[in-house]
Design a protein around this nucleic acid. Sequence first.
DNA 1: CTGGGGAGGGGGCCC
DNA 2: TGGGCCCCCTCCCCA
Length: 516
Amino acid sequence: MVINCTAQTERKIEENASIMEVLANAAVAEICKLVDDDYAVFRLEITQSQKENRTLRKKLLELKVARELAEKTTRERVLATRPSRVVDRYRRMARGEGHYTGGHRSFVKPAGHNTWKDDQPITVDEGSGTSTQHVIIIESAEAAGLEVKQERSEGEEDPRHSRDIQTGVAGAPPVVTEDPTTATAPPRTQCSITEVSGTPNAVLKSETKTLTVHTGSDPERLGCPPAPGSEYLPVFQQILKLVHSHVDGDALDTEVDVPSCSYTTEMDPGNISLDLERQTDQSKWDWNQYSSSVYSEGCLDKKGAVIVVDEMTVKVERDVPPTWNADSHLGDGHSQGREVLDYRESLETNTNVTTHSPLHALRDCDLVSTSMGHSNSHLFDQVLNSDDRAQGGGATSGNSKEKRFLCMFCNKGFSCLQKVEIHQRVHTGEKPYSCNQCEKRFSRQDHLKRHQRVHTGEKPYSCTQCHMRFAQAGHLKMHLKVHTGERQFACTHCRKMFSERSYLKIHQQKKHSTIK
DNA sequence: CTGGGGAGGGGGCCC
DNA sequence: TGGGCCCCCTCCCCA
């Protein structure tokens, strides 16, 4: 009985085992079949993809060859027409030249970089004021190390080609385009910013898009000159913001991190930097030139090239850390019954403030440890050490009037609100007064008035000893020393006498090196 | 080195 | 007190 049961059980077990084996084999076979099918499909897709890749590669090669040919042709033509133009321009800018000579210029920043490097190419275009139009394009491909630079004159200008060079896409019209889809592209893509200056229009380009900004007086393009507050302004601001946020996601994605440095800086073109620390390290700046050429709102020059970036720069100011004020910065507070003009408030409400002072850029930096170039140090000294002046007198030097109003930037005291407001323009770079004859801007009305004598030729100060006339009283005073032979500045080392302190200073710098 | 010229900044005066 | 204006000092650039 027991044996029978055992035998039956064994049989059942064997049967089950055989059934399971069959099922397992069937499952494996099915799986294999599925895999084979999928693999076949996959192989088919791979083959198709490889075919497409080969086709695309071939097309790419053709495009590349065609592009190089076109580029070469263009270069040859440009070189044939103006062979030394670019070189001369570099040389001039290297010498720090580039003053207003009838045209204006643009700085082209290789996009994709937050900072300017010494070995980075900087292209500066000084409009000649003639009909010649220059387009300077710098493409900086960070990853590939690719760099393409183009310059051509108006007669050779092919807007389509201009875009082609940038994007490799043909057929796009040279109009204002702003592709929102490209704005979300990865930040470290190849970018370029191009500005056409000295001519009826200007172009801003980025790698992923072409931004054309018409800043000239061409009625067809512009409709009307971009007067302050016109619709043109926010457009350009938006564009700049777009480019700005597009340039480098690491450092420029937030304006808080990089205040004011985006397009509010002006400096020696060889040292243009969008990085604050680098800004302060530059040896030479020319703040006025760049502000005039790039940020001269409300003052159309004869060519009508006006670009305003007010909103952006003010927005930057809004992001001033709440801790940044004279209290925290200078540490001594204002418990002396004096007042600090909080410029942040006015900046928040005044969207027409242009803020592009180098000192402005310093607000987040250590004022003491920050190294500055010559021009900056001069300005810096004027701001911070004006109390030490032997003559002229700083605002806090001995004075009968109470200095109730303190500058929130340097803590200097002034007798009235207007004075401190004007003074703070030293820090903010605000230049509300623009010359209607040129693109220059001034922080003070009287300086504008004085400047306009350059255009009018007015020289109200005449020498009683000779026929000489001067536009500034100080110049007449200096000139009078020619007649009097007055030399009141003596070198302490060689007893040599000079009529001017600056001459003595230069002498000591050269001969004795006593003055840093 | 000198002188002319443009410009930045501070202070004072007057209305 | 604010605004305009002027003077002054200074610096820098250039010829």
